[in-house]
Design a binder for these strands. Structure first.
Length: 576
RNA sequence: CGGUGAGUAGCGCAGCCUGGUAGCGCACCUGCCUUGGGAGCAGGGGGUCGCUGGUUCGAUUCCAGUCUCACCGACCA
């Protein structure tokens, strides 16, 4: 490719509205341009990277036995009404009507469409297992699109759906996809973790997320430093502390704690450790149900765990009025003793072993000391509702400690069970001629997001440092001075050689000063740069600069093409 | 949706407080010069100052409304 005939509109200055580095660099490198909030043009260079990654995904999907197809992005409302998600999905589902007033939506995901196809076509257990995938444009009307391709409204996603005769067969399909995902992200040279995750609005029984580690990541994850346990913090189980009790229950006392509203204030004022206090929080569902959560004072609540335990659709901090009505006290002095209303009191498991604790007395400026469960208050259940912290013991092994990371979710695999097949009545006949419900799994990879995540993880002050498997070009040839006939001839020669060898090469033949070319080549992240200048040429040499390390090799004219070809092949072979 | 901030040339910004019809850097065009890390000189083109209304002789500037965008919170690949 001739740079002068290609289209790479780089920009020197960082656009002011780009916050994260991958967004800044993709704009500056001329890979993407914004058309509307969360909606982007993929410019030629960006598209090349995206296609590269798509093809890695395709290769691994095919290897894992998945079959490619393509579904429409416009979907009829009926299917969504049938699955029940027309009502449940909310405003993220972009809905519209056609000229006949029939309702449609832009597909945010394709469980309905694929399940509809399968229920029409699959009749027998002999036809399964099946796994269909597609690489397709999705639309989700995100409340707050941000970070460029990281969270767009329109985005390219690989989604796959598996269909099996029963749960254990479905587990096998799940495992195949899990392993394929591991290979995909390994091939791209990404530093990532597969973590246990909450299933969210997709539903189903269990799931793993694939998280590229990056400080700018929107998710927090933990992983054990000794065993393989890793989980999204939303899901991460807190360790069970052994019950510590000094046995003797002291006398319950109400003490004055003027203006002491936080655990830190109260603990300091009463001169007790924060871990001998109990924190009380009141939550409300969207339909107005209330629940009280008790945690050790220095612990944090995991709202998702509480929400899942309560089975609520939505969880909100209770309003001041709601709190006042059920406890009789404003926030700051809440506790489970002497409630005005009967509401569920959910205690974290750690609270079970605590004795003689400090907790709010449901009266302004008053706390209890020496409160004890059983004697002074009761709880409706002990449940893991706290957020794990770095340094917590691993819930799975004896010796490990949890480490905490930020991550970008680039892939997510779900065991769906029969959630969609049941709703859409996707059944088959088993060997006994009996009708059975199909078991499903679904598997997504954010294509653009992965490319963005790769940039997030591979860059320096000069720009992108693409891993070779997803680099838009493998190498570039830079002619230092295009007016120098000798330089141009040598550069062209190398360019043609490389093309002949099947190397993806960008020939920077622009009549620009060398500095401009070097800066652009660095910015767009080309892994190898061959520089042809008059100085080196006088000795029959050109130089090859490696973007990632900054190392410079001096090679003779005749060997450079083959050497570069070899370097690229070696790098790509490692990624297979 | 709530909170914060911003809309002035393709990009990054100044001007606005204290009204008088717009400027800087980069980019772009022409010419000269230059060619190993975003050079230099000279000339030039480009803006209904987000939109609507109000106040005023006069509004980019003051007022009101509105739209858009970005950032912080709950969702997600």
């Amino acid at each position: 490719m001739l740079y002068s005939r290609y289209f790479i509109p780089t920009i020197k200055e960082t656009p002011s509205d780009a916050e994260v580095i991958s967004h800044q660099l993709m704009l500056r490198a001329g890979m993407i341009r914004k058309l509307a909030s969360g909606i982007y043009n993929y410019l030629p260079l960006g598209l090349r990277s995206i296609r590269k990654f798509e093809n890695i995904v395709r290769e691994e999907m095919n290897k894992a036995g998945a079959i490619e197809m393509l579904m429409p992005s416009v979907q009829p409302a009926e299917l969504w009404q049938e699955s029940g998600r027309w009502a449940f999905y909310g405003k993220e589902l972009l809905r519209f009507k056609d000229r006949k007033d029939a309702e449609f939506c832009m597909g945010p995901t394709h469980e309905e469409v694929i399940t509809d196809m399968v229920r029409r076509e699959i009749k027998s257990y002999r036809q399964m297992p099946l796994n269909f995938y597609q690489v397709q444009t999705k639309f989700r009307d995100e409340i707050r699109p941000r970070f460029g391709l990281m969270r767009g409204r329109e985005f390219i996603m690989k989604d796959a759906y598996s269909f099996d005769v029963d749960s254990s067969a479905a587990d096998l399909s799940y495992e195949k996809m899990y392993n394929a995902y591991m290979r995909i992200f390994e091939r791209c040279g990404l530093n990532f973790r597969a973590v246990e995750a909450d299933t969210g609005s997709i539903g189903g029984s269990s799931s793993h997320e694939f998280m590229v580690l990056a400080d700018s990541g929107e998710d927090a994850i933990v992983s054990c430093d000794a065993c393989r346990y890793a989980a999204n913090i939303e899901k991460a189980e807190s360790p069970l502390y052994s019950v510590v009790s000094d046995g003797t229950a002291e006398v319950l006392q109400k003490v004055s704690t003027p203006e002491m509203k936080t655990i830190a204030d109260v603990a300091a004022f009463l001169n007790v450790a924060a871990d001998n206090t109990v924190k009380t929080l009141v939550y409300a569902s969207d339909s107005g149900e209330l629940a009280m959560a008790l945690l050790r004072g220095d612990h944090e609540l995991n709202e998702l765990k509480l929400k899942n335990y309560l089975g609520w659709d939505e969880i909100l901090m209770a309003s001041e009025e709601q709190i006042l009505a059920c406890t009789g006290s404003p926030v700051g002095f809440l506790g489970p003793i002497g409630l005005k209303q009967e509401i569920p009191v959910i205690a974290d498991r750690v609270v079970q072993g605590m004795t003689n604790v400090v907790m709010g007395a449901n009266e302004v400026d008053l706390h209890y000391i020496n409160a004890n469960r059983g004697r002074d208050f009761e709880v409706s259940g002990f449940v893991d509702i706290r957020t794990v912290e770095a340094g917590d013991a691993c819930p799975r092994c004896d010796s490990g400690k949890l480490e905490m990371w930020r991550g970008i979710e680039v892939g997510h695999v779900f065991k769906l069970g029969t959630k969609y097949s049941k709703a859409l009545n996707a059944t088959y006949l088993d060997a006994n001629g009996r009708e059975q419900i199909i078991f499903m799994g679904c598997y997504g990879i954010g294509i653009g997001r992965t490319v963005a995540a790769a940039i997030e993880q591979n860059h320096d002050e000069n720009g992108i440092i693409f891993p070779i498997p997803i680099a838009p070009f493998h190498c570039s040839v830079v002619a230092v001075n295009t007016k120098d006939a000798g330089v141009m001839a040598a550069a062209e020669e190398i360019y043609f050689c490389l093309e002949k060898l099947g190397v993806e090469v960008l020939f920077d033949d622009r009549d620009e000063r060398p500095g401009v070319k070097f800066k652009d080549n660095d910015l767009i992240g080309i892994p190898l740069r061959i520089v042809v200048g008059s100085k080196g040429l006088a000795e029959g040499k050109v130089e090859v600069k490696i973007r990632s390390t900054g190392d410079i090799l001096s090679l003779s004219l005749d060997e450079v093409a083959n050497t570069v070809k070899q370097m690229i092949d070696t790098a790509l072979a490692h990624a297979e």
